[in-house]
């Protein structure tokens, strides 16, 4: 998966487009999660701490901060790999112009996914800084949560961008968001430990890439690394990226250079 130079040119194009749209993107990938952190972590968290004291060994704010970090990286990834790909293949058809140059469909796919990664890194860094200021990151290891959240974002962007290229309309996208992304956001250990879930539901959460990303981030920000588990989580996420990547290079080629 070494980054070929052509792929970087795709990245450059995305960056130019982004300069015009940064406000909406900054809002959804940074301001919204910070508001959740303030409302749920501080507002509701105060009530939690008054009663239960600690959740999983840390204060509620420190518990929920890494959850929101990884979950919002996922949401950014989903939002920016479904509709923008539809726009590129179908609505504005910019992708067709790109593959008429020496760039290949695979370069385009790779560049698109990597661009999501770049944005996830930026958003995660900004969010982490705010979480530190609010006192939600007890450990200096917390810095490692940024690459962890980025990896989590890629684990969603890679397969979702691949899927988007197979679709002719965006009709299924809201359904994916509402029945896939939102439930994951709410039940993957973001707001409460998955040990509280009914036992039949727990395996579902464990199967979701988001839970693995949240666990990685949480180990980093709370400074409680468990190396064997962390290796496992990382492996699952990398497997998701790799599988998505294999699929995506094919779906992009099929769509753009049939």
């Amino acid at each position: 998966m070494a980054v070929a130079p052509p792929m970087l040119r795709v990245l450059e194009r995305e960056a130019i487009v982004f300069r015009k749209l940064w406000r909406g993107s900054a809002f959804s990938s940074f301001v919204t999660p910070v508001m959740f952190l303030a409302a749920i972590g501080l507002g509701l968290g105060g009530l939690v701490e008054r009663r239960t004291g600690h959740v999983a060994g840390v204060g509620y704010l420190a518990f929920v901060a890494p959850g929101l970090l990884a979950a919002s990286a996922m949401q950014t990834a989903a939002g920016s790999s479904l509709w923008p790909v539809m726009a590129g293949t179908k609505w504005i058809r910019t992708y067709h112009a790109v593959v008429a140059t020496p760039l290949s469909a695979a370069d385009l796919y790779g560049g698109t996914v990597l661009w999501v990664g770049v944005r996830a890194t930026a958003a995660a860094s900004a969010f982490l800084a705010v979480a530190v200021l609010l006192g939600g990151v007890p450990s200096p290891w917390g810095i490692l949560a940024v690459p962890a959240a980025t990896l989590g974002a890629l684990a969603f962007a890679a397969p979702l961008a691949a899927y988007a290229a197979t679709q002719d309309t965006d009709l299924t996208f809201p359904v994916i968001m509402r029945l896939g992304i939102v439930p994951l956001f709410l039940f993957s250990g973001t707001f409460f430990p998955i040990s509280q879930l009914p036992s039949w539901l727990r395996p579902v959460s464990v199967a979701s890439p988001l839970w693995h990303a949240i666990e990685l981030c949480r180990q980093a920000t709370t400074g409680t690394p468990r190396w064997a588990a962390a290796t496992g989580h990382t492996a699952v996420l990398i497997a998701c990226v790799a599988a998505g990547w294999r699929w995506g290079t094919r779906t992009f080629a099929r769509r753009l250079t049939p």
Partner: peptide
């Protein structure tokens, strides 16, 4: 329900 269990 989930966070509620922590709030009481």
């Amino acid at each position: 329900v989930g966070v509620g269990a922590l709030v009481g």
